[in-house]
């Protein structure tokens, strides 16, 4: 680690060279510089994207949220007016509420079902890889596909509701997409169907990574299987759970395709989401200022989830292991 760090730090390198015999040390010194220069060149695209896309563009978006821009950027400052308007727009309020209901349920259900599926698959079952393939394939498909399939299955007169009613259960209701009150749960079902396999795979990998001796020890101690999973294994899986949580939470904030395909935001504005709000305002509604204010608001939950995680995992000095 230290060695590679030294290649980058030129001043440190030079002082090192200065201290020792000149001619003997100069050659590798120059070579090191060349490598670090090449590394700099090679990482240019990444630096440009990192700075250009994720600093300048984000900053530009935030800047625009303080202006009255309609379909083109105009720097006519109006302070926080857009935010005030935003939080007085019913469509936005519904979007935010939807995101929270959908988000919390989505994350919780995916985590629980993903863990349960992983545990059940971990019981030395036959056809394990077959089950795994089945649980995960929806994740390989586009959210547009997911949305369209579930839209069709939730069709009131030809879908699942109709089939069950025909079987004799006349009062059966399963057509959430036409009822503004529960339409968001229809979206939730589709989203869970698509993403819970992902959690299952991560959790299963986590379970497989646990020291077999732990299992043996708990068996000698006479601790039942479910108790071992709940009180010993689950706490050991914290990193996997955090990872899954981050991936799912980010998916919640981003959700756009699924809404567009499955409900189009309807009925009415019942299933609007912030991501769709932003896109609609910068495209068809020609209100960039308001859209950017909404986008800035979207950034906050992402920062809240990702920020501490990135800091803890990558930026802060390593905890002792």
């Amino acid at each position: 680690m230290e060695e590679k760090g030294a290649q980058i730090n030129d001043s440190e390198l030079n002082s090192e060279v200065g201290k020792t015999v000149e001619s003997a040390e100069k050659k590798p010194g120059r070579k090191r510089k060349r490598i670090s220069f090449s590394a700099l060149i090679a990482s240019m695209p990444m630096m440009l994207v990192a700075v250009g896309l994720f600093v300048i563009c984000v900053g530009y978006s935030i800047l625009l949220s303080f202006t009255k821009s309609r379909s083109f950027p105009r720097f006519n400052w109006i302070g926080l007016d857009q935010y005030e308007r935003l939080w007085n727009t019913e469509r936005w309020l519904v979007s935010v509420e939807n995101m929270f209901i959908y988000g919390v349920l989505f994350v919780v259900i995916c985590l629980v079902s993903g863990f349960v599926m992983a545990v059940f698959l971990d019981q030395k079952v036959r056809f394990e890889s077959g089950f795994r393939t089945l649980f995960l394939y929806p994740y390989a498909m586009s959210l547009v596909v997911t949305g369209l399939v579930w839209q069709w299955m939730m069709e009131p007169s030809l879908g699942i509701q109709n089939v069950i009613q025909k079987l004799g259960w006349a009062g059966f209701e399963f057509a959430p997409l036409v009822d503004p009150e529960i339409a968001i749960y229809g979206v939730l079902v589709a989203a869970v169907w698509q993403a819970s396999g992902l959690v299952m795979v991560l959790m299963l990998a986590g379970l497989r990574g646990i020291d077999m001796d732990i299992w043996k020890a708990s068996r000698v101690d006479g601790i039942s299987t479910w108790r071992t999973y709940l009180f010993i294994i689950l706490p050991m899986m914290r990193p996997v759970i955090v990872t899954s949580l981050v991936l799912l939470a980010v998916g919640v904030v981003r959700v756009y395709d699924l809404i567009v395909a499955q409900t189009g935001g309807g009925p009415g504005i019942a299933t609007e989401m912030p991501a769709k709000f932003v896109i609609d305002h910068i495209t068809v509604r020609n209100n960039v200022g308001l859209g950017m204010a909404a986008a800035t608001m979207m950034l906050l939950p992402v920062l809240a989830v990702i920020g501490p995680w990135i800091y803890r995992e990558y930026v802060s000095p390593r905890k002792r292991s």
């Binding site: 990192a50 978006s61 800035t296 950034l299």
Partner: peptide, 15 residues
């Protein structure tokens, strides 16, 4: 960069 992997497209799309 990691932040970039998670940032919503909506925030950078207009610029």
């Amino acid at each position: 960069l990691l932040f970039g992997a998670f940032v919503p497209f909506q925030v950078v799309i207009f610029p």
